[in-house]
């Protein structure tokens, strides 16, 4: 993953923004990769479901120690976490 061009990184954020607004949260109209997820309704139950969705979709296992408030604060942080987990697995 680390060797992929920047456009692929962009697309992961975009995919996640769509995933979160279509499948998880009632996001605000201006929701984007830098929006605060907690302000958009990410509660404890939603964190669990987001984890299930991204782990299924991207075939990654995010270590428990990385499940921090900071890593779930925005879609961009989450994308970074997925990339790291994916790189570790590779």
């Amino acid at each position: 993953m680390a060797s992929q061009p920047n456009s692929a990184f962009e697309s992961l954020e975009h995919q996640l923004v769509s995933l979160i607004s279509e499948r998880l949260l009632e996001t605000r109209p201006d929701f984007n990769a830098d929006s605060n997820l907690y302000d958009n309704g990410l509660d404890s139950m939603a964190i669990m479901q987001l984890l299930v969705l991204v782990e299924e979709k991207y075939r990654v296992a995010i270590p428990e120690g990385d499940l921090t408030r900071q890593n779930f604060s925005t879609t961009r942080h989450l994308a970074e976490l997925i990339r790291e987990s994916s790189a570790r697995a590779a």
């Binding site: 964190i47 120690g65 408030r69």
Partner: peptide, 8 residues
């Protein structure tokens, strides 16, 4: 506690 995250 309002969160399930380990740190909280």
């Amino acid at each position: 506690v309002g969160s399930h995250l380990a740190e909280d």
